[in-house]
């Protein structure tokens, strides 16, 4: 029972944080709120029995994301957002989609339900046979590295592509050599 209460309190905090991220106009403060938001998400994951996800969110979401956002702020040097206007079509669209989703959510299994379809099938197999088949007591690790190893390989490929993209976009290494090459050609042609 305490789990459920804690869960609701944290969710309310999270919603407050999300709304304040949307409305705050000082971008530095937004970055700080964003870090807090990620930390709250990590706490929520812990309450919902997902410690591995909580670790990752705390390290990657709170740490790296916030640092990247602060770095972008530092490079661009812009700290204030222009006064935003209310976007009526977007507001209408969001209310409509949100309302539809709430109606649909009534058909979802309630939180912690034993008959939930997510618990049937392969998840049951992982819990019952995981230790036997992989020898790892942490089922999340067993699934991540053994049953779904190719998934993780794909993830690494995505991160690599992301890293290459960032390097190509920022491209300091590309501009300097090309200048040097030009100078060299000039010198030799003279």
């Amino acid at each position: 029972m305490i789990d459920v209460v804690l869960n609701i309190v944290l969710l309310l905090f999270l919603l407050t944080m999300a709304v304040s991220i949307l409305f705050i106009r000082h971008l530095m403060a937004m970055a700080m709120l964003f870090g807090l938001y990620s930390l709250l998400t990590a706490a929520l994951f812990l309450v919902l029995d997902a410690p591995d996800v909580a670790f990752t969110e705390a390290a990657v979401g709170t740490g790296i994301s916030t640092v990247l956002m602060l770095a972008t702020l530092a490079i661009t040097g812009i700290h204030k957002e222009k006064r935003p206007k209310i976007h009526l079509p977007a507001l209408l669209l969001c209310t409509l989609v949100g309302g539809l989703l709430v109606v649909i959510s009534l058909d979802l299994p309630p939180l912690g339900d034993e008959q939930s379809p997510a618990l049937q099938g392969v998840a049951k197999h992982y819990l019952e046979k995981g230790k036997e088949e992989t020898g790892v007591p942490n089922v999340v690790t067993a699934v991540l590295a053994s049953y779904r190893g190719f998934d993780t390989l794909g993830e690494v490929a995505v991160i690599f592509t992301g890293g290459v993209c960032v390097l190509m976009l920022l491209g300091h290494w590309r501009q300097k050599p090309s200048v040097k090459v030009k100078n060299k050609i000039r010198i030799t042609s003279r």
Partner: peptide, 15 residues
């Protein structure tokens, strides 16, 4: 929905 609204309505790219 907060996220969706922000993506559509906010002008600042960082936001």
């Amino acid at each position: 929905m907060i996220g969706l609204y922000g993506i559509i309505a906010r002008q600042n790219l960082l936001k």
